[in-house]
Design a protein around this nucleic acid. Structure first.
Length: 478
RNA sequence: GGCCCCAUCGUCUAGCCUGGCCUAGGACACCGGCCUUUCACGCCGGCGACACGGGUUCGAAUCCCGUUGGGGUCACCA
């Protein structure tokens, strides 16, 4: 059975880069009928918070990603939170020490800092000197008596680590590139590069699918696998996602969390679709794909190895496609409700539904409802300086509105069909058509020079409110 | 800086592994037009790329080497 995992550290909202990693693990799992595990990497006690874990899970679910094992669903390989696995790690640290693969290091941070600075000033890369590598029991006793808390370092064998990455092919790295590294901190908490190996091995992970930023860590992990006699999983390092300035996507690139996208009115289906196309593409030249279509075709071998810049413009477009073509009107209205309410546009579901029907063709995110939707809820129209000038200057402007008002003032109803026939009449009578006819009406009814089709607008707001707005316009300019 | 990874339109990408079907295809964005008595949607068209230099070959976007550029990583963070 193939088993994969997504292992975020709960230090903030689900970042887009991590979301993409989670997504590709999910796609692989679906395609291969593998088990997906959610593991929380919270060994950094200072930055990790339970609230973040909850948000992470919430965001993942919102995106449409599900997993078979994890802290919220349990499973046979738990616990799934690293902070709860400390005893397990201790056991393996002990084993490494006993078998001579690891040793206690009493060097102080100041001491190491000095070595590091020296290395940098001499223009070479810093590597731990190995000073404590061969301490005698007597040496250790001296340190212990001074109450110096040691770290544990892994005794890195001198070799060239070779592994085959599914996405990148053969990668070779000399272990000289990193000296004996710390696997347990002074405070007794083991470090990422060590625990990730223990967890992946004990959880029977067959494929480690993660970001390229972990590529250079991989050899460190491989030597630990070897020391412990564990089977080494297959690795697939996904290309990293860059911001528009071509550096790794991070907070300073603005809204880059899944949560931010949600708040900006993006639909999870669109985000899922767009994210899956970042570094991967289907055989056919089709970009709007359902979840099933994506995971039926997804193969790690087809993932690109070059980094991609995240382009919001395309996401926006794709979100628009989902809004107007993919999601049903009822469903869309349900999802839009909280946005309507957030903007102070209060009405019942039926009314929201009508508004959505009228505006869905002209919005790309649910946040766009704020602008496009206003005219359906606010009857008070504000006329800008420019508009006022325009109305006074254009001789037919006022007349068009007045004529229209004369024709609707006694009406009880005003459907879009009725609106069309009335404007047709005006066209004949005043010999005015097109923009010259509709623009004045649009200004009178909305105060804006662009927006949804006027037939749809009057159909939704009805005869009374249409007349009210017209009267206000006529009074204002009369 | 050392090491590692990467390199096709502005952006996402197809093609590369298994050289000729490539006069390099698609999508977003942008520009123009059509449809529409208004706004959108939609449709049609245009703009636009193999980073550079050497090889190998009858033939290179595709294979090899170098240069340049970009990114990642070098912690008692994950």
């Amino acid at each position: 059975m193939k088993r994969v995992r997504f292992a975020p550290s709960p230090t903030g909202y689900l970042h887009l880069g991590n979301a993409r990693t989670a997504l590709f693990n999910y796609l692989f799992a679906k395609h291969e009928r593998a088990i997906l595990i959610l593991r929380i990497e919270d060994t950094d006690l200072e930055r990790s918070k339970k609230e973040y874990e909850d948000m992470l899970i919430e965001d993942l679910k919102w995106l449409g990603i599900s997993w078979e094992e994890g802290p919220d669903v349990s499973g046979n390989f738990g616990p799934y939170r690293q902070s709860e696995r400390v005893d397990i790690y201790k056991k393996y640290v002990q084993k490494l020490i006993e078998e001579g693969h690891a040793y206690y290091c009493y060097c102080s941070e100041e001491e190491l800092e000095l070595e590091r600075e020296k290395a940098i000033s001499e223009g070479r890369a810093y590597r731990y000197s190995g000073k404590c590598r061969n301490l005698t029991p007597e040496d250790r006793k001296v340190y212990e008596e001074k109450r110096i808390k040691p770290t544990v370092r892994f005794k890195v064998p001198d070799k060239i680590v070779v592994f085959e990455d599914i996405i990148r092919g053969v990668v070779e790295i000399d272990t000289k590139e990193f000296g004996d590294f710390v696997i347990v901190r002074k405070d007794g908490i083991p470090v990422y590069n060590f625990v990730v190996v223990i967890d992946d091995a004990l959880m029977n992970i067959s494929h480690v699918i993660r970001g390229e930023d972990h590529l250079s860590n991989t050899p460190k992990q491989i030597v630990i696998y070897e020391a412990l006699g564990f089977d080494i999983p297959k690795f697939a390092h996904l290309p990293i996602i860059l911001g528009e300035d071509r550096t790794k996507l991070s907070k300073r690139h603005g809204a880059v969390s899944v949560r931010a996208l949600k708040d900006e009115g993006y639909l999870p289906e669109a985000v899922f679709n767009a994210l899956s196309l970042l570094g991967w593409h289907p055989k056919e030249e089709k970009e709007i794909l359902s979840k099933e279509e994506i995971f039926n075709q997804f193969r790690l071998e087809d993932v690109n190895s070059s980094p991609a810049i995240f382009d919001r413009t395309k996401l926006r477009w794709m979100n628009g496609v989902y809004i107007r073509e993919i999601i049903s009107l009822d469903d869309l209205t349900k999802r839009a409700t909280e946005f309507f309410e957030g903007f102070g546009y209060i009405a019942n579901f039926e009314y929201y539904r009508k508004v959505m029907e009228a505006i869905r063709d002209s919005i790309e995110t649910l946040l766009d409802i704020k602008e496009r939707g206003r005219v359906f809820f606010v009857d008070e129209t504000i006329f800008s300086e420019e508009v006022i000038k325009e109305v006074r200057l254009e001789e037919n402007f006022y007349r068009v509105v007045q004529t229209f008002y004369e024709k609707v003032k006694d009406r009880e109803t005003l459907s879009k069909e009725e609106f069309k026939s009335i404007t047709k009449e005006i066209q004949k009578e005043l010999n005015i058509k097109g923009k010259a006819l509709f623009h004045p009406l649009r200004i009178a009814l909305t105060g804006e020079s662009s927006g949804v089709g006027l037939d749809l607008l009057v159909d939704v707001i009805g005869a009374e409110r249409t007349k009210l707005r017209l009267r206000r316009f006529l009074e204002y300019f009369g």
